[in-house]
Every structure is written in C-alpha cells, then in structure tokens.
Design a protein around this nucleic acid. Structure first.
Length: 634
RNA sequence: GUACCCGUAGCUCAGCUGGAUAGAGCGUUGGCUUGCGGAGCCAAAGGCCGCAGGUUCAAAUCCUGCCGGGUACACCA
C-alpha cells in the first residue's frame, strides 16, 4: 500500500459570521501580499487624444443637424474623429461649410488638431508633428509606468483563474485560463484595479470520490504509484480506468446505472463527512498535485495571491443549504435533491445538494462567492473558465444575485473556447491529451537550437545556463502569445507548427524586435543613450512624421488607450495586437532609417536613438502586461 | 427539442454600438543584406463578408427567415 498514513490533513477551520446571514471560512493567509499600488500621480490614459475636445465638438456638431454622429475614426492613427455629413452636404452645402467652419473654430488650445473635409466626411485629425515630441517625452519620463493609469483606482476585482483539478496533470486546456487570467490581472492593475488572483483548485467533488474508490480497488496494481516521480501519472491512470469501467457498466446495463459510479459517489460522501482515512488519501493527493502545478506555474511566471480549492468551501455546505432554503431560494424536489429556484422560469434549476446530502460544484461556487464577498468586498468577480460552462454560470450568478441582492458584485464569466487537437477534442479517457509540460518542453528544445545557432553566428559567448534560460523565455513567450493573440471566445485547434512558429505574428517576433533594439542601444553606448533620452523636452527629435515615424509615435500614443480598453472590455488580445503593430512598425523604421551608420548625421542619429529608446520602452511595458518574457538577447 | 456561439482570402482569424478602397498572420510568387541582429522588411496574387429578404442616404455590421458547423441543457466539474 502507498504510504500516505503520515499525512496530517487539516480538519478544523475557523468560521466567521457575515452580513449575508451565513457563516463563511475565515480568510486564509495570502500566499503573496495583495499588490495595492498607488497610481494617482499618473497621467490619464487619453492624455493626447481628442476626448479633451470631445464635449466641445459634440455641441458644435449637434447644433448643425439632428442626425449627425461624431464618430471615433476607424483608423485611429489617421484621424481621431470623423463626422459623416452625407445628407447635410447633399441638402445644404452652405450649412455643411458652416459646420466645417464651426468645428475648425473649436477650442483647441494646444493647437494639435486640424480639420479637413474629405468628400462628405469632416475629419478631425491629430497633428503628428506637434504630438510626436510630446509622446516621446511622456514615454521616457514615465518609463516602466507608461501605459498605466489610475482610471479604476479604488476598484477591487477578484479573478477566478487557472483552476486545474488535482490528481491530474495540467494539460493544454488549463493553459488558457492561466494565461488569460494572468494577462487580465496585469492589465487591470495597470488601470489602477486592486486585482486579486485566486486559483480555484478543483480539489473536491464526486470525481475525487471516483478516484478514491479506484485507489482502494486497484491502487496496488499501478506501478507508477510506487515511484514518487510518477505518482500523478499513476493517479491519472486510476481515474481513466474507473471512468472506462463506469462507461462500460452503463452501456451494458438496461437502465444506464453503474454500481461503480454509485460507489464513487459514496466514497465522496464519506470524504465530505470527514472520514479520516479518506481525508488522508485526499491530502496526500492534494500535496502531490500542488507540487506538480507549482513547477508549471514557475515556468510560466505565474503567481496567485490565493490558491483556495473547492475543498475549503465544503466546510460551509450546510450554511449554504440553510441560507438558501430560509430565503426561499432553494427547494427540495421529489428525489430529495435541493435545487435553486431560478428567477426566470425558462432557466434550468441547478442542484446544490444531492439526495445523500453531499455537495456539488455549484454549492461550492455559491459558498465561494459569499466568502469572497465577505473577504474582499469586490466590485467584480471575473471567472476565466471555459465557454461550455456558460449556462452553469448563469445559474450560479442568478442564484447568488437573488441571495445577495444589492450587495452582489458585478459577476463576469470571461469565457474561452476549448483547445482542441487536429484530430478532435482532447479526451483524457481516450488518451488524446497534450500535457502542458510536453508543449513547454518541445518549445524549449526548438528554441534552444535556434538560440544556440544564433549566438554562434553572432559570435557571442554565453554560458549554457544563460542560453537555457533564454530558450525558456522564448518557449514561454511563444506559447503565451499563441494563446493570447486571438480573443478568448473561440475554440483553438492546437497546431504544433503554428504554436511553435517563431515568425510573423508571434511571441518570439516581439522578443526578437526587443532584442534587436536592445543590441542597437547597447552598441550606441549607455552614455549617448542617456544623454539623448534625459533631455526633458525631446528636443533631439526632428524626424518627418508623415510616414512610418508618425505611425510609430501614434502607436505609442495609443498604448495607454489600448491598455484602458483591454481592461474595460476584459480583452488582453487588444494589447497583443497593438504590440504586434508596434513591433512591425518599428522594424520598418529600423530598415529605412540607418542609425549607427557613419553616413548618418549627428542630429539624425540622436533623433532616431530617441525614438528607438521610446519604442523599446513601450514594447517592454506591453510584454510585461502580457507576462511575456523580454530577454536582452535571443 | 430548447437556449447560446460561429459561417469574412487556400488555411487560422480581426473588423460587427451602421459610414470612406473589408484587414492581419500562415501558405504561394517575386524582390531587399558593402547599413545597426534576415526570427526582419517591401510587393504581388488571392474576397457575391453562408443564402434570401427587410430597415437606411449608407449594411460584413442592425432585423426576419433559411442553410451549414459547434456547445450546453447530470445527484460531473
């Protein structure tokens, strides 16, 4: 038998009263302190763009005609606002001209906009030559803080992220919640939010009962369980085995019942009722899994303020049952199950207590919400969980909203599609899974080849340890970016070649651009870069802003706006896209504007170094927000 | 069956609070290193924006219907 008798499970936890009329667990100590940052002193996100003029313009436009919209222009680096005045122009050209004139006279104190009529459109354009030095100056002055803003200061958001199940290895499916949750956290913080990451571990429930039962039946037959380094694999084997047998039982029985499954449920009930032997096995498994998850998180550079598994909330099952029944929000059905009473009749009722008295996923989520409300008093709780659970979250949110009334925080299901394999869905039972560690290892090995040959070609000697670290940075960057570059909603068909493609719109492309800039600045020398960038008014900047230089500075100007929008729309992809554009534009600039060439004049050299330093800063800040490593060389 | 999501370039997808020539990456074809990292840059080819109606000065975008693909509807999570 496996030795887990020495494990000492935590039994007693302290409960505290809440204003919701139910007890919740006392808040466990945080793993890392919640990062409460001070952003008051930062500039607003829209400091350069037209919103400062917006009210004024709206008044002018609406006085000219009832149905004239003032639109933010589609291409933001070209025009800031456009007024499509087709009708006005057709009906009354004189009025059109009058409007054009009035808009031109709008109060633009800083003189950074111009108004042009293009066909029936009146465009209000930013003057790039005026703005560009301001932008560069701001970027360099704010440094690592550029892009951050205090727009959401005072707001608290709890993010329910990652949430792998214990007793199984993390696979590709867990990647998205982890990666999206991490980027979202960093973006929210850049907006001033007090963001709390809680890894809602799947460490409880009937599935665990199945495993426990399987362990007792066949634990001795699984060789992997005897070797500490393969024990999680052994547990997974057990899980697969029992599920297969349950399936077989169901298929061969007339009524679709499975005694084995019933036994699994019973095992879970035993665990939930506090059976010491069951708890010891559970704790052993829990500890094993936590250690294994920790390795993956370290590689990905991800941390959580809290890792509070579902098991914590099982201590207040009876509180949930009682509170919901007392308030008439849950009722027992004819089979002895306790079900929520939905506010909308069309909604299915969610079961929160089985007929044997044990809890379900939803019970624990309700308990968890009540706890989070008490602990953190959040404005919002964001669940980064797969889209297949959309209806489930509607049920939980509905139930909790009825229960907590006005106290209910904003509840957001940040849904993402599944990661599928080219030959279909991942299925643990069918052995069609790609484990996260496999993907990382493969990415690392490919990156290592590339980095090694790169360094050889460039004649750079670095020790193996450093090269290995860089290869990890690239591997992790590639995988994080692959996940982040398309919005969460859709399913991703995992394609090895594309995920590990280091060209085009990819993580390594961004890292490459960063490394290249870094090499350039290094070659120029600290002294010169320092001299150029320390000037407080960007006075060295004297490029023509009509082309790629203008595009580049406008992309830098928009960066804080994008960070803001990514925060409000919960969409980290916006930052990823923006960085791609920025890097791409920089590469065009790099190609067309020699900097360190002997033929470049001193003035041009300084001016271009200044722009390069600013672009580098924005790129770095953006990569940081997405949790993509930015090594100096790759 | 009911509800929700998705049909845009050969492939994977942006764009969808209606506005100007529908954009990226991959792939294909061609070009660019005496000048800083070619993991780069430039260009070309490639589209009845699923189909049919409707609203509008204006529809990939809004509405209705249809067709095709997916997901959810457990005493799982």
């Amino acid at each position: 038998m496996i030795d887990h008798d020495g494990i000492d499970p935590v039994d007693e936890i302290e409960l505290v009263d809440t204003e919701l009329g139910m007890k919740v667990p006392a808040l466990p100590e945080a793993d890392i302190a919640v990062d409460l940052h001070e952003l008051e002193q930062l500039a607003p996100y829209n400091r350069y763009l037209l919103p400062s003029l917006q009210q004024d313009l709206e008044a002018v436009v609406s006085s000219a005609g009832p149905n004239l919209p003032l639109l933010p222009a589609k291409s933001e680096i070209d025009a800031d606002y456009a007024v499509p005045a087709h009708r006005l122009l057709a009906a009354d050209p004189e009025a059109f001209n009058h409007l054009l004139e009035s808009i031109s006279e709008a109060d633009d104190e800083q003189g950074c906009f111009e108004v042009v009529a293009e066909g029936p459109f009146i465009n209000i354009k930013i003057k790039r030559d005026v703005i560009a030095p301001w932008v560069i100056e701001e970027v360099l002055a704010e440094g690592d803080n550029y892009g951050k803003n205090g727009a959401d200061l005072g707001r608290t958001v709890v993010l329910d992220v990652s949430s792998p199940n214990i007793a199984k290895q993390m696979h590709l499916g867990h990647l998205r919640s982890t990666v999206i949750g991490e980027a979202m956290t960093r973006i929210l913080r850049a907006n001033g939010v007090n963001a709390i990451r809680d890894n809602h571990l799947g460490d409880w429930g009937t599935q665990f009962g199945m495993l426990g039962h399987a362990f007792e039946l066949w634990g001795d037959e699984i060789p992997e369980l005897k070797n500490p380094s393969t024990q999680v694999t052994g547990l997974l084997k057990l899980y697969v085995k029992i599920n297969q047998e349950v399936l077989a039982e169901k298929e061969s029985s007339a009524d679709g019942e499975s005694p084995l499954e019933d036994a699994g449920r019973a095992w879970f009930t035993r665990l939930e009722e506090g059976d010491p032997a069951a708890k010891r096995l559970w704790q052993w498994t829990y500890n094993l899994s936590r250690a294994e998850f920790e390795e993956v998180y370290q590689r990905l550079g991800v941390e959580f303020e809290y890792t509070l598994g579902e098991s914590l909330y099982s201590h207040i099952n009876s509180e949930v049952f009682r509170a919901f029944v007392d308030r008439g929000l849950a009722a027992e059905d004819d089979k002895g199950r306790l079900k929520l009473v939905p506010s909308d009749e069309k909604m299915h009722a969610l079961t929160i207590r089985k007929s044997d008295g044990s809890s379900l996923y939803g019970t624990r989520d309700l308990a968890c919400l009540a706890s989070r409300l008490h602990w953190f008093d959040p404005n919002e709780v964001i669940y980064a969980v797969g889209a297949e659970q959309t209806d489930y979250f509607k049920q939980v949110f509905d139930g909790f909203s009825q229960f907590a009334g006005d106290e209910t925080p904003e509840l957001t299901h940040l849904a993402f599609g599944p990661i599928e394999l080219p030959d279909g869905k991942m299925s643990t039972r069918k052995g069609r899974v790609v484990f996260l560690s496999e993907v990382l290892d493969e990415a690392h090995s490919q990156a290592l080849d590339r980095v090694t040959s790169n360094m050889e070609r460039r004649g750079i000697e670095i020790d193996d340890e450093h090269i290995d670290q860089v290869a990890w940075d690239i591997a992790v960057g590639a995988i994080i970016y692959y996940d982040l570059k398309q919005p969460a909603g859709r399913k991703i068909v995992f394609d090895w070649d594309e995920a590990l493609n280091f060209q085009g719109n990819s993580g390594p492309f961004l890292q490459y651009t960063n490394a290249r800039i870094n090499a350039l600045l290094e070659k120029a020398g600290d002294a010169e870069v320092e001299a150029v960038t320390s000037s407080t008014d960007a006075s060295y900047f004297k490029e023509d802003t009509s082309g790629v230089v203008g595009d580049l500075t406008m992309l830098m100007a928009e960066f804080p706006v994008v960070v803001r929008r990514a925060g409000t729309t919960h969409n980290p992809t916006l930052v990823a896209e923006h960085l791609y554009k920025l890097a791409h534009n920089f590469n065009s600039f790099y190609r067309d504007y020699p900097i360190l060439s002997p033929d470049t004049s001193e003035d041009d050299r300084r001016s271009r170094l200044l722009l390069t330093a600013a672009a580098s800063q924005v790129l770095k800040n953006g990569l940081k927000l997405l949790n993509i490593p930015a090594p100096d060389r790759i």
